[in-house]
């Protein structure tokens, strides 16, 4: 199409991989399932496409072009061992922590990889619900996993509550850039723990982050105070203006015609 100007715009992300794979529904359900799941994922929401993980050419119309291993570096479905590397391209810190954890340093056959816990296509925002008896008792006892979850839950809840309060302030048009930054840093420091798998470290960091959240909570409180004072002032001002309109109305009435 002439005019690349028009081609860009605000459409939901789709490409040839998605189109063709959905069309394979009848031939092979397993080929259509990935795009279906991916459409509900946090990656779709952030425009992370099939080719970001699998390589290949997103504009290739036929299989040959799309699955081109030479020029477009198509890698097919990555083997388990390669998966941390694929995800690690973008999730660098997580990858780093994971590579140092017992989950990677164990025997190859026993390793849980990223997709064991997160899935490959239906990836949602990560929460502590990912630590559950079903997943974590597959290869060892749940006991230690549970203790990690318990140690993290209180702080995780605090971080979530703060996130909601910040979001509320933001939706009221308040400037939350610095609050957001602080929260983001605390959340990152904390979430690192889920891939380190070291209970002592979890307890230690949960404590420090817990204290930091108190400070952040106070700062958010200040902003909330500002917001309610502004509202009060706005209410009074609006009331005066309406009284003014009423005053003008009666002044005009008193003049007659």
């Amino acid at each position: 199409m002439p005019g690349s100007a028009r081609a860009e715009g605000a459409t939901a992300p789709e490409n040839e991989c998605v189109r063709c794979h959905l069309e394979q529904e009848e031939e092979d359900e397993n080929l259509a399932k990935p795009p279906k799941e991916w459409r509900q994922s946090i990656h779709h929401e952030n425009s992370i496409m099939c080719n970001d993980c699998h390589g290949g050419s997103p504009i290739g119309k036929d299989e040959e072009e799309a699955h081109d291993e030479e020029d477009a570096e198509f890698i097919g479905a990555p083997a388990d061992d390669d998966i941390p590397g694929v995800c690690g391209e973008c999730h660098i810190a997580v990858h780093e922590n994971y590579m140092k954890s017992k989950h990677w340093l164990t025997k190859k056959e026993k390793r849980p990889v990223c997709t064991t816990c997160h899935g490959a296509h239906l990836i949602k925002e990560a929460t502590l619900d990912l630590i559950n008896e079903k997943t974590c008792s597959e290869c060892h006892k749940y006991e230690r996993s549970k203790r990690i979850k318990v140690a993290m839950t209180a702080t995780e809840d605090k971080l979530l509550a703060l996130e909601n309060r910040i979001h509320l302030l933001k939706s009221e048009g308040m400037d939350v850039r610095s609050l957001d930054q602080t929260h983001f840093a605390q959340r990152n420091l904390f979430h690192r723990l889920s891939h380190i798998l070291d209970l002592d470290e979890v307890i230690r960091i949960a404590e420090t982050v817990g204290k930091d959240t108190e400070l952040l909570s106070n700062k958010i409180g200040e902003q909330e105070g500002v917001l309610s004072r502004r509202r009060l002032a706005g209410g009074v001002l609006t009331a005066f203006l309406l009284l003014g309109a009423l005053g003008m109305h009666f002044a005009r009435k008193s003049l007659g015609e």
Binding site: K170, T238, L241, M248, H249
Partner: peptide, 30 residues
């Protein structure tokens, strides 16, 4: 009469400014 209308619309303006700033500043505007 003009002032009556102006006061009224000023009131509307400030209701927007103080209570529904999302009209102009939804999260994507931040």
């Amino acid at each position: 009469e003009d002032m009556r209308a102006s006061y009224f619309f000023l009131a509307v303006l400030f209701v927007g400014v103080f209570f529904v700033p999302q009209i102009s500043f939804p999260p994507d505007a931040m």
